[in-house]
Design a protein around this nucleic acid. Structure first.
Lengths: 205, 205
DNA sequence: ACCTGAACACCGTTCAAGT
DNA sequence: ACCTGAACACCGTTCAAGT
């Protein structure tokens, strides 16, 4: 009898998928990202997880990069939330840096995506740029309060950019394993230590 | 007459390659990296550039990742040099930050590789860890002088880590296109502005 | 010892075809 | 309008075979 060629991979698709695909793809991608980390985040893997053909995504996103950009935008929106909730208690800068740092360490995979090399080439998706600017805006607002200056002062922008650089740098160095800090130190202590270090450098000059 | 199957791709290899392959691969990879950026840096592309089979590299490197790690180590060695040459003139911190920043902006592709997600999983190649520590050591030495403290003081380590975070963060945000600064501003002015911003934040508290 | 070629299991993306 | 399947041009990596 004639041999039926074996299905080459994955189990069969028993239904023709209907509607609502875009959010399902984003959800699956998000889960895949936190479970397996970036690098495993292929369009094909995401599609398989949803139970849809490898090419279905192209009816909702222009490319893999665009799907990833939407995911990154989602990340920036979450970061914005974190940066507004945590504006309680004295020592604003320490509090906001700590909240930022905890978000990054708690969501390393999406944080890498948000600030990674994925979108360096080509123009940025508007929704991503928007979410990004919103998050940076929160930081600026807090810095403006701290300095008791209007939010559009150039000193505020410079100080916010510098603060962002510091806390992003710290998060990035940790996430990428460039620096290693004993577990015993803890997030709060690390942020305190490094902020203290910066202060000392500037007092010394 | 029987049709000879066309060579599927690339021009033929007319010679059997002899010796000295490892450094040639690293050189080709380095050039490919600065010309095309990371992402185009495949083992196959590197091999083709050298004129060798796609699998030849495996006799010299355990994997693509290991070749990349050697490249990153090379980057850290160059960074170390930059950080020692430029220890002239007053205002040490500004000078060293500027030198660092210029290296990053001048070599964005290799900088991304050095601090990117490529080596997050698995253990780090010893030669890479070494080169990395050497570069951080230079920074620590300069900070120690600045603070007039012994190099192994915990305050020095904290301050060096914080400074590194700041300048790496700034470079990273720029290279990845997260922030945009008008060309007119220039590297020196940007570093001055942000350092000034940090100083103001700490004076205010 | 060092390099090649075929093969495997993956990718992103296109395009004509099915529902 | 939305989804599928086959196909194309890529990947990293293995392994037996050639020099």
């Amino acid at each position: 009898m004639p041999t039926v060629p074996k299905k080459p991979s994955s189990r069969k698709r028993d239904t023709y998928h209907v509607g609502n695909l875009a959010p399902q793809l984003l959800d699956a991608a998000r889960r895949l990202l936190s479970e397996e980390g970036p690098g495993k985040l292929s369009l094909r893997a995401v599609s398989e997880r949803v139970g849809v053909s490898p090419t279905a995504a192209y009816h909702h996103f222009a490319s893999r990069g665009e799907l990833l950009a939407h995911l990154a935008a989602q990340g920036f929106r979450e970061l914005s939330q974190v940066l507004s909730e945590d504006r309680i208690g004295g020592g604003q800068l320490l509090q906001v840096c700590l909240a930022y740092f905890r978000f990054a360490r708690g969501n390393p995979a999406i944080y890498q995506l948000m600030f990674g090399a994925e979108f360096v080439s080509g123009e940025t998706l508007p929704t991503l740029a928007e979410a990004r600017d919103e998050a940076f805006g929160r930081l600026e607002r807090i810095i403006a309060e701290e300095l008791a200056l209007p939010r559009d002062a150039s000193e505020v922008r410079a100080a916010a950019l510098a603060s962002w650089s510091y806390i992003h740098g710290l998060a990035s160095l940790m996430i990428h394993g460039v620096i290693q800090v004993p577990d015993a130190v803890g997030d709060e202590r690390l942020v305190e230590l490094t902020l203290g270090g910066l202060e000392r450098v500037f007092r010394g000059t």
